[in-house]
């Protein structure tokens, strides 16, 4: 059940320049899934629209959620000033999340680029330890993260869940380049891919998966107004006529944000 709530800020810290890590207490955590997102509302009413922010982690007791976001404008700048005990308006939980069952018994790439990295953390946690049927060996969970520079936020946390490979644009850590450069340099291979990151990275992932005939699940973003599927602001072009819209558009907020790469035209 979706709801808009006033959640309580439990903690907040800047974990890399302009990247903030916030835990909030909310009953929305009970139903949260890896790959879902929240709409977060600024208090300043000159900035009306919600900011869609992915769920980075669900606390074990399912009473708190973690969001890790980058300050990109007035709204996220306001959020970055919130302190412990403060209130934050959130709508959730939104979107479909990553299909975990597709990882059963397979070698998987978990790929994150930049501020697309946070939602991959809860996914890595779920895939590595939720069900016994998921990849049996840790080596089969390959986490490939792309950063701008040596500020490799969340990297250590991923090491609990799989083998971590790093790419940086400036070459300061790991492979110089992007996540696909790391795959090539390390000679990695997988049966299924989960990815979130900037559009050029997702296009490269889609092309890679297409050439190898493997499934890739990519998480998309777009400017949103409602977050719940009503306004049709955040659509992505689809290969086939979509079952809900009856045209070649799917709503990222509601039909996504996770799509099978071959179904969308990006």
């Amino acid at each position: 059940m979706k709801a808009k709530q006033s959640a309580v800020v439990l903690s907040q810290e800047e974990i890399a320049p302009t990247v903030y890590d916030m835990w909030i207490e909310t009953s929305l955590a009970e139903q949260a899934k890896a790959g879902q997102f929240l709409c977060v509302y600024p208090g300043d009413k000159s900035t009306l629209l919600p900011r869609p922010i992915s769920i980075c982690e669900v606390r074990e007791d399912r009473r708190a959620l973690r969001i890790v976001y980058r300050v990109a404008g007035a709204g996220t700048r306001e959020f970055s000033g919130y302190e412990k005990g403060g209130k934050i308006d959130v709508l959730g939980t939104l979107g479909n999340g990553f299909p975990l069952e597709e990882a059963v018994g397979k070698k998987v790439f978990l790929m994150g680029g930049g501020i697309g990295i946070p939602p991959i953390l809860e996914l890595a946690k779920q895939i590595s330890r939720e069900a016994g049927a998921l990849p049996a060996v840790r080596e089969d969970v390959m986490v490939i993260l792309g950063y701008r520079d040596e500020k490799t936020f969340l990297k250590e946390e991923f090491e609990k869940y799989g083998s971590v490979f790093i790419a940086t644009e400036d070459g300061s850590v790991g492979t110089k380049g992007n996540v696909m450069d790391a795959v090539r340099e390390k000679g990695l291979g997988a049966d299924v891919i989960y990815a979130c990151g900037p559009m050029p990275m997702l296009r490269a992932v889609k092309a890679y998966a297409g050439e190898r005939k493997i499934k890739a699940y990519i998480s998309l973003e777009e400017h949103m107004a409602c977050g719940v599927g009503a306004c049709l602001g955040c659509v992505v072009k689809t290969k086939e006529i979509h079952h809900h819209s009856h045209v070649h558009n799917a709503r990222i907020c509601t039909d996504g944000p996770v799509f099978e790469a071959e179904e969308v035209e990006i």
Partner: peptide, 30 residues
């Protein structure tokens, strides 16, 4: 059915928003 406009279709402005959805709709049959 109408496909509507390309994205970005929405933008925030001071105290409001702009939209250019382009009347995407599934048509009268659906």
């Amino acid at each position: 059915p109408w496909e509507g406009n390309p994205t970005p279709r929405v933008a925030e402005v001071y105290g409001g928003m702009l939209n250019a959805i382009g009347l995407q709709n599934p048509g009268i049959d659906v």
